[in-house]
Write a protein that binds this DNA or RNA. Structure first.
Length: 358
DNA sequence: TGCGGAAGAG
DNA sequence: CTCTTCCGCA
């Protein structure tokens, strides 16, 4: 940002029509996720573009698969990226090389057979919190259900950095809003505090109340209070198979599988799994011992919309290393989504927020 | 088109 | 560490 070749194509510019009037939040540039100061990472950038309507002709989410996006205009994306990074010589060849590095980091993988199509590794679904539906101005559920292809459940990868998480949610919400023609005015993840990213090792989602840091996930009583920045998120469809937790609960998630920025050790304490549920999510059943159990995988089985089929999580090699695609578990969205029942009780749904893995 | 090694910059 | 740049290979 000092080279003067910033902006343009850089959504971070103030005043840009960010989905909710908020320029790309600070957290996207946090040192934790970006080496050496606030250098934006490519995947951040990609997400940025994906969120902006004006780039829809250049890059866009692909309907059909979760997290899949298509680079419609490789040269343009490269140009934008180059501009952002002050690398005038940037081209798609180079950019794609960078993207390929993400394969091994399990951030992305290539959608074979589809040109310029990549997919964020939203495998290993974990629960993504849904602050109350409609806490502020989010579109009503039916909107979500009405546009199935556009709202894939927020299936996020274990180890996904909260930044990505935010972005994804943001993106989904963007879509939702665009679709719904909604104009929400508030509520984006403004870099809620955080400032103190404390470099590495610090738990992200620093805006979480202390209580949430006790365990890998937490139920928020009042999202808008606890997680102001997320409170107004429009929740994507509920994944049919959620694994709430990460890190300590999934012993088999070796560091190599973590996403950048989340590979730091420590911090997230095992603590009480899901803290006392004050108001249990209706229709939810907690499987896998809240208390103990080998696998220690807490799964929430929400009302499963029929048609939602879920594949079991991929196993991690004993070695702990996964092939980029290995860890990708697809959850086929409502192929036969009969927009059915996402349940009327969604409004009572409590946010279950996975802390970043250590 | 896409992949991944190698070297190097910051 | 995250790319950037080059390049050979398929």
């Amino acid at each position: 940002m000092q080279c003067g070749c910033v902006a343009e194509g850089a959504p971070a510019v103030p005043g840009s029509p960010w989905i909710s009037g908020v320029a790309f939040p600070d957290w996207a540039y946090k040192a934790e996720s970006s080496p050496g100061s606030r250098q934006i990472q490519l995947w951040h950038f990609i997400l940025e573009l994906l969120q902006k309507e004006e780039f829809r002709h250049v890059i866009a989410w692909q309907q059909g698969e979760y997290g899949e996006f298509v680079i419609k205009d490789p040269d343009e994306v490269a140009r934008l990226w180059g501009r952002r990074k002050c690398k005038p010589q940037m081209n798609y060849d180079k950019l794609s090389r960078a993207l390929r590095y993400y394969y091994s980091k399990r951030i992305l993988h290539k959608t074979k057979g589809k040109r310029f199509t990549y997919q964020f590794n939203f495998g290993r679904p974990i629960i993504v919190s849904y602050p109350l539906w409609g806490v502020r101005a989010p579109p009503p559920p039916h909107l979500l259900l009405g546009a199935p292809a556009l709202f894939r459940p927020a299936v996020l990868p274990m180890g996904m950095p909260s930044e990505l998480l935010h972005s994804v949610l943001l993106a989904q919400r963007a879509t939702v809003e665009q679709l719904a023609g909604h104009q929400t005015t508030q509520g984006l993840p403004e870099a809620t505090e955080d400032k103190k990213g404390s470099g590495s090792g610090a738990p992200r989602l620093s805006s979480l109340p202390a209580a949430c840091q006790l365990g890998p996930c937490c139920l928020l009583g009042s999202p808008q209070d606890e997680l102001p920045s997320l409170a107004s998120f429009t929740p994507p469809l509920l994944p049919s198979n959620w694994t709430c937790l990460s890190g300590p609960f999934l012993p088999s998630v070796p560091p190599e599988q973590q996403f950048p920025g989340s590979s730091k050790p420590d911090t997230v304490l095992p603590g009480p799994r899901c803290p006392p549920v004050t108001r249990p999510f209706p229709g939810l059943r907690l499987l896998a011992g809240l208390g103990q159990g080998a696998g220690e995988r807490l799964q929430l089985w929400p009302l499963r919309p029929q048609g939602l089929e879920v594949k079991p999580y991929p196993m991690m090699g004993a070695k702990g290393h996964l092939d980029p695609r290995e860890g990708f578990s697809e959850i086929h969205g409502p192929k036969t989504r009969d927009k059915s029942p996402v349940s009327p009780q969604l409004e009572n749904f409590k946010a279950v927020w996975p802390l970043d893995p250590p």
